[in-house]
């Protein structure tokens, strides 16, 4: 008898331990995700973003903040000398700045996801599960936040807290949780009265246990999909705040701020503003493709 391959072990329909069951489930999800090549392209872009951010010091050939000779190296077009994407008005290498800027982009994306997703999940599942006045109060608060255009509300927060990348992150997080709360509430309403929740209640499970252990896992996939699809919007909002001078401050190589700095030279030195724009475009596209792929795999309703 040949030994069981790892593939067979993972796909076994008679797992012998908790770990094997969980890994098997994850492996099945991965197998169906892998068949969607567009989603794999999205995943590739996001992984590349993470790697570039991790190894920015190694990848970037120049310092992102200190420029070269202001007399000879200003506004070099792409592919001149050792400057792959050219240089900007302060003789700084644009490629190096974009590479270092990926750290800021990733920081914004990760922190917003980490702050906004739990708030949205908590508010939404609580409102949906308890109903009544709890639901009314929580959802009206959500409505108030939803009534403002996101960028305007973020602007107001940044204006109150003071400009800077940290405050921009807080402002974006505060303005991006309401859609997740709505989504989680809607999902909770559909499962609140199902038999398996009644069964859990009949076993004496507390509301907190039911919310955390039974309701949240079923809301999580649709919220994760939504967060991933929103990532592009979050990057653009961060870039927009940077563009308006309320996000990252000079000389930080934030992509939106780089576009803002480059727009003065857009006619004669188009590459200064275009290159960070292309970076924003590629990363946004990557998150959108990844989100679409995740929806196909994770959303139970889309499954046949």
């Amino acid at each position: 008898m040949s030994a069981m391959t790892r593939h067979e072990w993972l796909l076994s329909d008679r797992p012998t331990s908790r770990r094997q069951a969980r890994l098997g489930q994850a492996y099945r999800t991965w197998l169906s995700f892998r068949t969607n090549w567009l989603a794999m392209v999205g995943l590739g872009i996001v992984v590349a973003l993470v790697l570039v951010a991790l190894f920015a010091n190694v990848i970037a050939p120049y310092d992102p903040v200190l420029g070269g000779d202001l007399r000879t190296e200003r506004f070099l077009p792409p592919l001149t000398g050792n400057h792959l994407l050219g240089t900007d008005d302060l003789s700084r290498d644009i490629f190096s700045r974009i590479v270092h800027g990926s750290r800021l982009t990733l920081l914004v994306v990760v922190l917003v996801a980490v702050i906004a997703t739990p708030i949205g999940l908590l508010v939404g599942t609580t409102a949906g599960y308890f109903g009544g006045w709890v639901d009314t109060v929580l959802m009206r608060i959500t409505d108030i936040f939803l009534a403002f255009p996101r960028l305007i509300l973020a602007l107001a927060f940044v204006a109150a807290l003071g400009p800077g990348i940290e405050n921009a992150i807080i402002a974006i997080a505060i303005t991006s949780w309401p859609p997740y709360a709505r989504l989680a509430r809607a999902e909770t309403l559909t499962i609140r009265d199902s038999d398996f929740i009644s069964a859990a209640r009949l076993q004496g499970a507390s509301s907190a246990r039911i919310l955390w252990g039974h309701v949240t896992p079923l809301c999580l996939s649709s919220v994760i999909i939504r967060v991933t699809l929103d990532m592009a919007g979050i990057i653009l909002t961060a870039a927009g705040l940077g563009f308006l001078g309320l996000g990252a401050q000079p000389p930080q190589p934030e992509w939106g701020a780089m576009i803002a700095a480059g727009r003065r030279f857009l006619i004669d030195q188009w590459w200064v503003a275009t290159m960070p724009g292309v970076a924003i475009f590629i990363v946004s596209l990557g998150f959108n493709l990844l989100g679409d792929g995740l929806r196909d795999v994770l959303d139970p309703k889309a499954r046949k």
Partner: peptide
């Protein structure tokens, strides 16, 4: 409808034991 779709049988049975 009466079994949680994301819980293994093991979890279904061990949860009431943990609660009590």
């Amino acid at each position: 409808a009466s079994l949680h779709p994301r819980h293994t049988i093991d979890r279904v049975l061990s949860e009431p034991l943990a609660i009590h």
